[in-house]
Lab assay of single mutants.
Amino acid sequence: KRYRAVYDYSAADEDEVSFQDGDTIVNVQQIDDGWMYGTVERTGDTGMLPANYVEAI
């Protein structure tokens, strides 16, 4: 699945990823209600991200 960031996010922990509004997130997997795991296409960084900061595309 592919998602697009709708807000900027700065990683708060080493297992999270930072991204900017408009970034595409690929290979996304749902972890639980609030978190997903995926790769930021622009940077190649992979990690956890907050589900409410992205939307499906």
Rank of each mutant, 00 (worst) to 15 (best):
F19D: 00
D33P: 10
A56H: 10
A51D: 05
Y3I: 01
G38V: 03
I25N: 01
T24G: 05
D8N: 12
K1H: 10
V6D: 02
D21V: 15
D32L: 11
R42M: 04
Q20W: 11
P50Q: 06
E55N: 07
Q20N: 11
Q30L: 13
E41H: 06
A12Q: 15
N52V: 11
A11M: 04
Y53V: 07
V17G: 01
Q30V: 13
T39H: 04
A51I: 11
T43M: 03
Q29M: 13
D8W: 09
D21L: 15
N52H: 13
Q30F: 15
S18Q: 03
P50W: 05
D45M: 13
T39E: 07
Y7F: 12
R4A: 05
I25E: 00
T46P: 03
Q29G: 07
Y9W: 06
Y3V: 06
T43E: 02
R4S: 05
A56C: 11
N27D: 11
A51P: 05
T39A: 03
K1A: 12
A56M: 14
E14D: 12
D33T: 10
A11H: 04
I31W: 09
R4V: 09
D21P: 11
D13E: 12
S10P: 06
T46H: 09
I25C: 04
D45E: 14
I25T: 02
Q30S: 11
D33L: 09
D23A: 02
E14Y: 10
P50F: 05
F19W: 00
G34D: 15
N52Y: 10
G22V: 03
D33S: 11
Q29Y: 14
Q29S: 13
I25H: 01
T46C: 09
S18E: 03
S10F: 13
D15K: 14
Y3Q: 01
V17L: 07
M48K: 15
G44F: 04
E41S: 07
D15I: 11
Q30M: 13
Y53A: 14
R2Y: 09
V28W: 06
V54I: 12
N27A: 09
G22D: 04
S18Y: 03
D8G: 12
V6P: 00
T24S: 09
D8L: 07
D13R: 15
G38H: 01
K1E: 09
T39Q: 09
G44Y: 04
Y37F: 12
E14S: 12
V26H: 07
A5H: 00
E16W: 07
Q29F: 14
T43Y: 02
E16L: 05
D23I: 02
R42T: 05
Q20R: 14
D8I: 06
G34W: 14
T46L: 04
D13A: 14
R4W: 06
D21R: 15
T39C: 09
T39M: 08
S18N: 07
Y7W: 12
V17R: 02
V40Y: 01
N52L: 11
G44E: 04
A5D: 00
T39G: 02
R2Q: 09
I31Q: 07
S10A: 12
